[in-house]
């Protein structure tokens, strides 16, 4: 009898949990659901929670979004790659080389997290315009890596400081230099944290709006965020198309949730790592 009550209390909590989930995720769930309803239904006097008619026409109406989608994919992949290329050696150095100024360096990296994007926007815009980096993939990758690089370092330094020194010493005794130690011993042991850093860097770039807005002036390059923004701003609004595009824009976050679940809390708290 006791067990029965305990178990039913558990399921009761599950029901409450699911209710909380539905309320909080409602806006996103609705984006997905409504992407399958005809555009005309968006103009109904009373919007319905669940689509009345199911259609895939919205997804076939967004061929114009394929370009922005691919642009963003390329930018996000290269942002993740650049963040790792710069961040991994830096994290290793800060975690294991006993430099006197490591604490100061970590503090400066932490400070980058508080720099308002709008503060960097003007200088970067003016500088990039001089360097010919406006309206270019390279410029956007650099700007987006400004979020990915510090994040990668904060996350990986924490993980790499946790690796026993004996592992590194053993590699040194085998004659491996620092670079080989890093790539053959340290990287494999922190592989999962590295994957998490890459996924988050990817996601920052994927969701970026500020750089897409600021560093593109002539329409040659339109990342997804900017494309949806312009899509929404147009007078003749194709709501079905907007929701279909938004649904596609949700996919990476969902993949991250499923694929790298246990690193999300690590990732969320990486900004909070102090020493």
């Amino acid at each position: 009898m006791h067990k029965f009550w305990r178990r039913s209390r558990g399921y009761g909590l599950t029901l409450i949990g699911i209710a909380i989930l539905l309320v909080l995720l409602f806006p996103l769930v609705w984006v997905v659901l409504s992407s399958f309803q005809p555009t005309a239904d968006f103009y109904a006097p009373v919007a319905s929670l669940i689509p009345q008619t199911f259609t895939l026409e919205n997804y076939s109406s967004i061929s114009s979004q394929i370009g922005p989608l691919l642009t963003t994919l390329v930018i996000a992949i290269f942002t993740a790659a650049l963040s790792l290329a710069i961040g991994i050696p830096a994290a290793y150095a800060l975690a294991v080389f006993r430099w006197r100024w490591v604490a100061i360096a970590m503090f400066l990296i932490l400070i980058t997290q508080v720099v308002p994007g709008v503060m960097v926007a003007t200088p970067l815009f003016l500088t990039f315009s001089r360097l010919g980096l406006l309206n270019s993939i390279v410029g956007l990758v650099i700007a987006n890596s400004a979020a990915g690089v510090p994040f990668t370092i904060l996350l990986l330094t924490a993980f790499m400081s946790g690796i026993p020194g004996s592992l590194r010493e053993a590699a040194h005794l085998d004659g491996a230099g620092e670079w080989r130690t890093l790539f053959s011993v340290i990287v494999p042991t922190t592989r999962s944290a590295i994957v998490a850093a890459a996924l988050f860097s990817f996601l920052f770039a994927w969701g970026d709006f500020l750089w897409a807005l600021t560093l593109n002036t002539n329409g040659t390059i339109t990342p997804l965020s900017l494309s949806i923004f312009q899509f929404v701003g147009n007078f003749q609004t194709n709501w079905g198309g907007i929701m279909a595009t938004s649904t596609i824009a949700l996919v990476p976050a969902m993949i991250l949730l499923v694929g790298a679940q246990r690193y999300i809390s690590v990732g969320l708290t990486a900004g909070a790592i102090k020493d």
């Binding site: 965020s225 949806i228 824009a249 949700l250 976050a253 991250l256």
Partner: peptide, 12 residues
Amino acid sequence: LLVLPWLVPSIV
């Protein structure tokens, strides 16, 4: 799953 709003692109 509750973390999702924090992970999705702001424009969405």
